[in-house]
Structures are given as C-alpha cells and as structure tokens.
C-alpha cells in the first residue's frame, strides 16, 4: 500500500528555539494516529508545517507522492489535506449550513460562481446537510455559527474540514475546552466519522482516554523531536514515555 504522507527529517526553529527537530513518520490510508506531547512540544507547529502555513527549514514532505514542503496552503488543501484547529476557526456570522456549504462549494469548484444563488447549488447543499447530520448539527443549520456552544463550534470546525473530503485529515486537539460529557461524545463521534467517511486521520490530543481509546498508532513528541512511535499498548508500557510524559498516572 502506498503511503498518503511521508514526512522525512523536517526541522523548524523560531529564533534560537528548535520547535521541530528532525521529525520523520508516515501515514497510510485508513490510519488513525494520535500525536501526544506536553504543551509547547511543537505539535501545532508540525501541523502548520504539514499544511504549508509555515515552511520547514529542512526536510521533505511527500503527500500522495508529491513534494509539498514549503508549498502554499491553498494548493496543499486542494491536493486533499484537511485541517481543523486547536483554536476554533469558523465563519462566525454565517449560518451553520453556510459554514459547511462554503467548503462543499470549494470542493466542487463552485465557490466563486457569480449570479447563480447559493441555494441553486443542490449538490453542495445536500452534501452540507449530510455532513451536518453526521455531526448532529443539522438542527442548528439556520443558526449563525457564533450562537453555537463552544463544543458545537469545535464540531463545526471539523465539519468544514470534512466537507473538503480530505485524503488526510488533521485534527488539532478536537476536545480541548470541552466538558467531560462532550469529550466522551466527541471521542465516539470521531471514531464513527473515521469509519463512515473512510478517513485517514491524524489527531493531536491531550485527553488520554481518547488517545488510548481510539488511536491505532501513537506518536510522542517532546521538545520538537519524535520521542517514540508505536501502538497504544507499546506507548503505554514504554519506560521512556512514562518518565518523560505520562508520569505515574498510568
């Protein structure tokens, strides 16, 4: 099987601070991989580099066989990389429906059509409703996005990324700021979305129940470097990880 993503020795420094330190890993179709690591370990920066928001200082990133290190975000996204954000990133004044529909229109290359009203774009509209339903947000479709609860806004953020039908989906702390109940629901939801949409999923998460509950593979990042990677069982029993990160809690 061909890998979707091959990251090879990427590096990034801010001033003197090395935030990404020779990180290498691969993602294969259908993978469900978690990235863990303490705050400031460089997890979000890694996503920023993968999506072209930041250019790496060194190293290569091959996405679907093509080199994308340093390419522009909009081109990488068009190639099929989707991303949801740690700090919720939505279009607050638009309706919940339009938040997702703009992404569907973009995917269908209808996003800059003039004159023809949005509601006449049936395929994008149907697809947007389908995605809202899969997230349980369809009952809010006419509401403006800023009216949603924090947890629902995070789901909407994921919905926007899903609407692009990404070949690789990156989720940055999907449960951050959620209540314990919302977290539990979101964990199940992400697992469901992964199988429903046949996703290849890479997610950053602090909630260990979620990481060890649904991930098939775990990457541990520490001070910018990949400390270790393995199955959840391997990570849980790895002495290095226990001393460096997990502590006594496991």
């Amino acid at each position: 099987m061909e890998p979707v993503l091959v990251v090879d020795g990427i590096e990034k420094s801010f001033g003197g601070l090395k935030v990404t330190d020779k990180v290498s890993f691969s993602m294969f179709p259908g993978d469900l991989t978690a990235i863990i690591g303490p705050n400031g370990a460089g997890k979000t920066t890694l996503f920023n580099i993968l999506t072209g928001h930041l250019a790496p200082d060194a190293g290569s990133i091959r996405f679907e066989g093509k080199e994308i290190a340093g390419a522009r975000t909009q081109d990488i996204v068009t190639m099929g990389m989707g991303r949801a954000f740690q700090i919720t990133s939505i279009f607050p004044e638009e309706t919940v429906l339009d938040n997702v529909r703009v992404a569907c229109l973009s995917k269908l290359r209808e996003a800059t059509v003039f004159i023809r009203p949005i509601s006449a774009h049936k395929r994008a509209t149907d697809r947007a409703y389908q995605i809202l339903e899969s997230l349980g947000l369809e009952k809010f479709s006419d509401r403006r996005a800023f009216e949603l609860s924090h947890g629902d806004q995070k789901l909407l953020d994921i919905g926007i990324a899903l609407a692009l039908e990404p070949k690789l989906l990156l989720l940055d702390e999907p449960t951050s700021g959620m209540s314990p109940e919302e977290r539990l629901l979101t964990r199940e939801l992400i697992k469901k979305l992964w199988s429903l949409f046949n996703l290849t999923l890479l997610f950053i998460e602090h909630d260990m129940d979620m990481v060890f509950g649904i991930a098939l593979k775990v990457l541990v990042l520490q001070q910018g470097a990949l400390l270790v990677e393995g199955t959840p069982e391997e990570i849980r029993s790895n002495p290095e990880v226990i001393t460096a990160y997990l502590g006594e809690e496991l």
Partner: peptide, 14 residues
C-alpha cells in the same frame, strides 16, 4: 468568509 476569517479561507483551498 474572507472578511470573517481569511486564514480559514486558505484552508478551504481558495
């Protein structure tokens, strides 16, 4: 959308 959140628009591939 560009007014409200231009950086997210780039993440729509636009």
């Amino acid at each position: 959308c560009i007014r409200q959140n231009p950086s997210r628009v780039r993440f729509l591939g636009r």
